[in-house]
Amino acid sequence: MDLPDDAVADLARQVRAKVTDRLVLGIVGPPGAGKSTLAERLRDVLNEDGRVAVVAPMDGFHRSNAELDSMGARARKGEPDTFDAEGYVAALRRVRERRGRVEWPTFSRVTDEPVPGGVVIDGEPIVITEGNYLLLDEGPWQDVRDLLDEAWFVDVPDEILVPRLLERFLAGGRSREEAEAKIAASDLRNAALVRTTRDLADLIIDGFAPD
């Protein structure tokens, strides 16, 4: 089920009403749940009358494939320790404290690598960060929640997640066999872990469109 335009507009109104100096909104959920789509649609609605919002994805802090290979963790890409969580927290703290211009990395599904400085955060009063582990209470991730003004959890059942993830991996050049193995061995396990943080969110949004 897609989220109707009027529902996104209502969410945007809620966000606008809470802004004072800078509002940092976290959108959390399992892989394929629709986090990126919601973040981008929300940003676009908020920016209809001028740039006030920017999206800062957690995926930009994926460790490079070379680093994952050196860790022996390439097959587990997407699990908590395959991200530079310390770097993400440090960048988010700079955004939270308005410490000047921040060049934030994004992630390319074409190259399967982070892109340095993919988005620039400067004077925008609304920063939307989205990712799987924003509410995870372990390691460096446990510092994220205090840097968010609000956290929303986006979710869909596994029977919807699996075909979305399969389509994503096939589009990225994996074979069906490789994609199915990755989903079974890693992504569904990640989804289960992320769902343990669901009750920590301020708002739950079920049944959204794909990333």
Rank of each mutant, 00 (worst) to 15 (best):
T196A: 13
V127L: 08
L136G: 12
D158H: 10
F107P: 04
Y88S: 02
A185N: 11
R99Q: 15
G207S: 12
E67C: 09
G32A: 03
D112M: 10
V28H: 00
R96V: 07
P210Y: 09
L134W: 11
F169M: 05
F208L: 15
R174V: 01
E124C: 03
A12P: 01
R51H: 09
V154Q: 00
G207F: 09
S175Q: 08
L136C: 11
D211T: 11
A75V: 14
A184K: 13
A192H: 09
D44N: 08
A184R: 14
D211G: 10
A151I: 05
P31W: 00
D137G: 14
A53F: 03
A85H: 07
P157K: 06
R43F: 02
T111L: 06
V55G: 05
L200F: 13
L46W: 00
E86I: 15
L46Y: 04
I128G: 03
G172K: 00
A91Q: 07
T197Y: 04
V144H: 08
V110E: 02
P116A: 14
R93K: 15
Y88G: 06
G131A: 15
K182I: 04
T129C: 14
V95K: 00
R76M: 15
Y88H: 10
E180G: 06
L193Y: 08
L161T: 05
P116V: 06
A33G: 11
A7S: 12
S108N: 04
L25T: 05
R189M: 12
E138A: 15
N65W: 08
E138W: 12
R101F: 03
L38N: 02
